[in-house]
């Protein structure tokens, strides 16, 4: 056994890394993911660069258990999460209209779902979806259709994995408002996915 598992034995060292090939093969993917999260070209570029350099430096730890693409995406994901955590706080302000989650006539006077708005079943087959590129594009475009600030809160929670407390602090929103925002976002996304994917026959 080598004293230093990161440089000895069969583990790759960082001289085996192929950063130029990563940039060539996965650059578009990484950049577009960063853009999806930060919506700023310069920041996206910086994050991709940081991620590639970090990957190069840490290549010895790459075990080959996932594909290089997945591994690089995870490193970029972590860089993005660090970035959004450190980003300056801002006040998100929502209009009442934006926070209305329900459609007219969706519920009756007693708050029951009405016949026209019944919720249909989804065929939930995660293994099939995983390898359907088309599905992930629909998911991204549905997230993109949420009102921008609502979409941002949603992404912080569901894509970046920040806690409710962190998000409320970061965006200076009350917890009560936060519940409404997330409810609104999830409801909108569920409808969009039903329309564009799960409800299609």
């Amino acid at each position: 056994m080598s004293a230093n598992p990161e440089s000895g034995g069969d583990s790759p060292s960082n001289s085996d890394a192929k950063p130029e090939a990563w940039l060539r093969d996965f650059g578009d993917h990484l950049y577009a993911y960063a853009m999806f999260r930060v919506r700023d070209r310069q920041i996206a570029e910086d994050l991709v660069q940081e991620a590639l350099l970090a990957a190069w430096k840490g290549y010895g730890k790459f075990q080959g258990r996932s594909s290089e693409k997945t591994w690089l995406t995870t490193i970029l994901h972590n860089k993005i999460v660090d970035f959004v955590r450190k980003a300056s706080r801002e006040n998100l302000v929502f209009t009442e209209d934006e926070l209305v989650a329900e459609k007219p006539g969706e519920f009756d006077d007693e708050g029951r779902v009405t016949v026209d708005h019944r919720i249909g079943a989804w065929a939930m087959r995660p293994d099939q979806l995983a390898h359907s590129g088309e599905f992930w594009e629909v998911l991204m475009s549905c997230i993109g259709k949420l009102p921008p600030d609502i979409g941002e809160v949603f992404k912080l929670r569901e894509i970046d994995g920040l806690s409710t407390e962190e998000i409320c602090k970061q965006k200076r929103i009350q917890k009560n408002n936060y519940w409404v925002i997330m409810h609104r976002a999830r409801k909108g996304l569920r409808e969009c996915l039903t329309r564009n994917w799960f409800g299609k026959t």
Binding site: D28, H29, A32, M35, W136, E137, L139, M140, I143, I159
Partner: peptide
């Protein structure tokens, strides 16, 4: 699904660097 999006989504096709 949102959790898996970074892993499975292929982002680069429509918005190249």
């Amino acid at each position: 699904l949102c959790d898996q999006l970074p892993e499975y989504g292929d982002f680069g096709k429509k918005n190249p660097m």
